[in-house]
Amino acid sequence: MDRLHSAVVIHSSHVTKSYKTSTRPALEDVTIDVEKGEFAFLIGPSGSGKSTFLRLLLREDVPTSGDLEVGGADLVHLRRSKVAAHRRRLGCVFQDFRLLTNKTAAQNVGFALEVIGRSRASIKQVVPEVLEMVGLDGKASRLPNELSGGEQQRVAIARAFASRPLLLLADEPTGNLDPDTSADIMLLLERINRTGTTVVMATHDNAIVDSMRRRVIELQLGKVVRDEARGVYGVGR
């Protein structure tokens, strides 16, 4: 651990997460480091613990044992009052988009900036910029139900990226999208990654993983079974 500490965005050491209601831990002895600027896929069969790991990183839950740090913040001992500040450094995208249905695309992005205390002037400037970046200029005043799935996911990505996070977490962001739309979303995530943002993405989509040739961390029954720098989804799958 004597590498430049500041370059490590995620430091997970022997992290185990057990839920009271289940016999087997959802995560067991997970030890991985993710460095700044990396793009890492988290793969594995259903129930292998991918979402659980992302939830720990978001501090929606706390590890049962082990050390977990994000951007130098100790998530195991993070005080409840510091959780919000921690999340402001992250962006997150989900399979089900999680947009506010009564707010327009621009309002959804603006809302996220508003609640973290950005000034009105800065919001007015940033929102059109990020919407343009994700290719939604002209659709800023549409409500989510007036947008396609792919477009809704772009709004979600714009919202996650608007605050220029240290780390972007994506839990099956293409899970509800067709292959072409998925490819567009991946291009977008790649672009975001090129700005220096670390991206960790959980996915089932082997085509995407195989085409990107990025780091692949594979989980099975909560354990890391593979961690390759330029991996594919898996042989024989």
Binding site: R80, A84, A85, R87, R89, R98, I116, R159
Partner: peptide
């Protein structure tokens, strides 16, 4: 929950 997710304080 979305507010909390994007980092709004309690």
């Amino acid at each position: 929950s979305i507010m909390r997710l994007v980092g709004a304080s309690r």
